[in-house]
């Protein structure tokens, strides 16, 4: 387990002077799994009020809501760890959705009706995500442009292009007629477990192993903590950062597959509204915008937290406004907790 990021909690309690015992509140705030405790506490608190939240259908709804969001957020975690940011993910979701759909659709798709349609379609999704991610990374590392500008421009350009592309392939504002086999990725299940969950599990576990157990993962944390020190220690900084953007792009493409499969259509406005939710989820989990700190498990916690709050508020009959306001409050709360954490660590 990488201590730099992982155990800021228990590591911080050890100073040159020795171990100091802390109050339970401080320990709780310092815990890296705080967001899981908060989610559990919240869940238990609303359970008596809305018992429906614990029913099978509600739980499975939460899961379907959560999975695509989680996959994008996992990609974003990589970028944030090296102190970057990727705002283009939702536009990748939208663009990949329509281009991928245009390959597979039975209504005049490039490979419509062919047995190769589904594998080629999936490959298209992944290639688009990877290539856009590579382009983002190239601009940020080789041309030295700030990530926020590169990906913000990408966001605006690709969102527009996705709509323009759709008009060239469909009378309506989306591309329907997708093959059954593809739709099953988003909707079906295997061994009693939704396919989307298999996909998310595969992405999550590989990402976790990549970050925690490989040279590449360690390099990313090192770059996020001190880029210059990493460079002097022989870390190929530019290449590593470039790859985080590729990973983020590919994750967005996978999320796009899940979304598109669920909706059975390629839609150019897909995912448009979740951009800030993605970043919020990662940050609530404990990953720092300043880089050097972050874990896949934390991101799972952050996404779970947002989804549980969303669902419970809906079940409580709360309208959109409460959902929004509570989300904002939660982000601010997470930020304040993080600031407190820093202060406690500073005190030693």
């Amino acid at each position: 387990m990488l201590r730099t990021a992982g155990a800021s909690g228990n590591a911080a309690t050890r100073t040159a002077g020795g171990v100091r015992t802390r109050g339970w509140l401080e320990r709780l705030i310092l815990s890296e799994y705080l967001v899981f405790y908060l989610t559990t506490a919240y869940f238990l608190a609303v359970w008596p009020i809305v018992p429906e939240i614990a029913t099978a259908s509600s739980l499975s709804n939460m899961l379907t809501d959560m999975l695509p969001l989680l996959v994008v957020a996992i990609g974003q975690t990589f970028v944030l760890i090296v102190a970057g940011i990727d705002l283009s993910v939702t536009s990748i979701i939208a663009f990949a959705s329509v281009v991928g759909a245009s390959v597979m659709t039975a209504d005049g798709g490039y490979l419509g009706g062919s047995p190769l349609a589904v594998p080629a379609g999936i490959l298209t999704f992944l290639l688009i995500g990877g290539l856009i991610g590579w382009f983002n990374g190239f601009c940020c590392t080789r041309l030295g442009m700030p990530p926020i500008i590169v990906t913000l421009t990408g966001l605006m350009f690709l969102s527009g292009t996705a709509i323009w592309y759709t008009t060239g392939h469909s009378e309506t504002s989306s591309i329907a007629g997708l093959p059954k086999a593809f739709v099953l990725i988003g909707q079906g299940s295997a061994y009693g477990v939704p396919n989307a969950l298999w996909v998310a599990l595969a992405v999550g576990i590989s990402a976790h192993l990549l970050l925690g157990h490989t040279v590449f993962g360690r390099w990313l944390y090192a770059i996020g903590i001190n880029r210059k020190a990493a460079e002097i220690s022989g870390v190929p900084v530019g290449t590593a950062i470039l790859w985080t953007f590729v990973i983020s792009g590919v994750c967005a493409a996978i999320a796009s597959i899940l979304f598109t499969g669920r909706l059975e259509t390629g839609t150019p406005v897909l995912g448009q509204r979740i951009l800030l939710d993605i970043i919020a989820a990662v940050v609530i989990g404990g990953t720092s915008l300043a880089g050097g700190k972050g874990k896949i498990v934390w991101t799972v916690g952050g996404v779970l937290f947002l989804v549980v709050i969303d669902t419970s508020l809906k079940l409580l009959g709360m309208s959109l406004f409460v959902v929004f306001a509570v989300k904002g409050g939660v982000i601010l709360f997470a930020a304040i907790i993080d600031a407190m954490r820093q202060r406690i660590i500073m005190r030693g």
Partner: peptide, 17 residues
């Protein structure tokens, strides 16, 4: 500024290169 990752452990710093 360049030699160490101050926010990381001894082991992580030592292992990096």
């Amino acid at each position: 500024g360049e030699g160490l990752m101050m926010e990381a452990t001894i082991a992580d710093n030592t292992a990096l290169p």
